[in-house]
Simulated scan of single mutants.
Amino acid sequence: MKKDDANAERYIAIARACLKAINDTAAEAGSREEKIQAVYQAIDDAFQAEFADYRQSVAVMGTVLERIASGQLDAETAASLARKTLDQQPENTRNALIH
């Protein structure tokens, strides 16, 4: 992955969480299955944290699309609402690929 990739920081944060979980579980007592589950949980937690902005942005856009799709807004109002919604979108969700 290139350092200037928009998702590089996300990948690094997720990778660090995974490595930390692996290191933490290696020294702990417990079954192999418990250790694997702890690593899976760390991966899930890291993904949830890294994509929280995306989920919030998608929820807002869904609400706006529902209002536009209702047909109760004239074209100018619908276009204005769409522009305002796009302008309020978090910077890290704009034009970035999600892998």
Rank of each mutant, 00 (worst) to 15 (best):
M1A: 11
K2A: 10
K2Q: 15
K3N: 08
K3D: 12
K3Q: 14
K3H: 10
K3S: 14
D4P: 04
D4W: 05
D5I: 01
D5W: 05
D5R: 06
D5K: 07
A6N: 05
A6I: 09
A6S: 00
N7S: 11
A8H: 10
A8F: 10
E9L: 00
R10I: 13
R10A: 10
R10P: 02
Y11C: 09
I14H: 01
A15F: 12
A15I: 00
A17W: 03
L19G: 08
K20I: 06
A21R: 02
I22G: 02
I22Q: 03
N23W: 11
T25A: 14
A26G: 07
E28H: 12
E28F: 09
A29T: 12
A29I: 00
S31C: 06
S31P: 02
R32V: 11
R32A: 10
R32E: 08
E33F: 05
E34S: 07
E34M: 01
K35T: 08
K35M: 02
I36D: 03
Q37I: 04
A38K: 03
A38Y: 02
A38T: 02
Y40H: 10
Y40W: 01
A42G: 05
A42I: 01
A42F: 02
I43T: 04
I43D: 01
D44V: 06
D45F: 03
D45V: 01
D45W: 02
D45G: 03
Q48F: 00
Q48V: 10
Q48T: 13
Q48K: 11
A49N: 14
E50W: 00
A52F: 09
Y54W: 12
R55T: 14
R55P: 01
S57H: 09
S57T: 06
S57L: 07
V58D: 14
V58E: 15
V58Y: 14
A59N: 10
A59E: 15
V60W: 07
V60C: 04
V60Q: 08
M61T: 09
G62A: 03
G62Y: 02
E66Q: 12
R67E: 05
R67K: 15
I68C: 07
I68P: 01
I68V: 07
A69Y: 09
Q72T: 08
L73P: 05
L73N: 05
A75E: 12
E76F: 00
A78N: 07
A78Q: 05
A79Y: 01
A79M: 07
A79R: 15
S80I: 00
S80W: 05
S80L: 12
S80F: 11
S80N: 13
L81V: 03
A82M: 15
K84D: 15
K84M: 14
K84H: 15
K84A: 14
K84N: 13
K84S: 13
D87W: 07
D87R: 15
Q89Y: 08
Q89G: 10
Q89T: 11
E91A: 15
E91Q: 13
E91R: 14
E91W: 09
T93F: 05
T93S: 06
T93V: 13
N95M: 10
L97H: 03
I98P: 00
I98W: 04
I98A: 06
H99L: 13
H99W: 05
